[in-house]
């Protein structure tokens, strides 16, 4: 029991990551509105970025800039004194990619709204079936 409590308290960043991933998945699957689905996708992406940044964090470490780099060059550098900067650099790219996917997704949602007049998924499916009943009927089963 003591070990489990220590694990839960010591790794609280990862529990928050799990919670945020579940929130994002719920919004992507259960919400009917397209903009809510896009917000869920973004929450999922930031949760994964939080996971990677939590890997690089260290207790009692400072920013990854070498102290006293100029002047006296002859001293040892301990890696435990500096936060690991490699996950930060990887996640910098992921943030830019997430904004690009957000722009494309919102553009697609706006095209769907201009075509069908609604952002709700079930109403869109109903309008598709009302508009082309013969095509849906001949193409076999649908949802």
């Amino acid at each position: 029991m003591e070990a489990i409590t220590t694990l839960i308290i010591a790794k609280y960043n990862y529990w928050a990551v799990i919670l945020l991933i579940v929130i994002g998945l719920y919004a992507m699957i259960a919400k009917k509105n397209l903009v809510k689905k896009i917000i869920g996708m973004n929450i999922f992406q930031t949760a994964i970025i939080l996971f990677y940044v939590s890997i690089g964090a260290k207790r009692g470490a400072t920013l990854p800039i070498i102290v006293h780099a100029h002047g006296d060059a002859a001293h040892a550098i301990h890696a435990a004194d500096y936060i690991n900067p490699l996950p930060h650099v990887l996640m910098l790219t992921a943030i830019v990619v997430s904004v690009a996917t957000l722009g494309v997704a919102l553009a697609l949602a706006m095209k769907i709204y201009f075509h069908y007049g609604t952002l709700e998924e079930d109403e869109i499916q109903k309008k598709i079936m009302d508009r082309e009943p013969d095509k849906v009927a001949t193409s076999g089963e649908h949802l």
Partner: peptide
């Protein structure tokens, strides 16, 4: 958490 570069990219973007 010490990721200042990620932080100001997130704040702007």
């Amino acid at each position: 958490m010490g990721a200042v570069d990620v932080s100001f990219t997130e704040a702007s973007v």
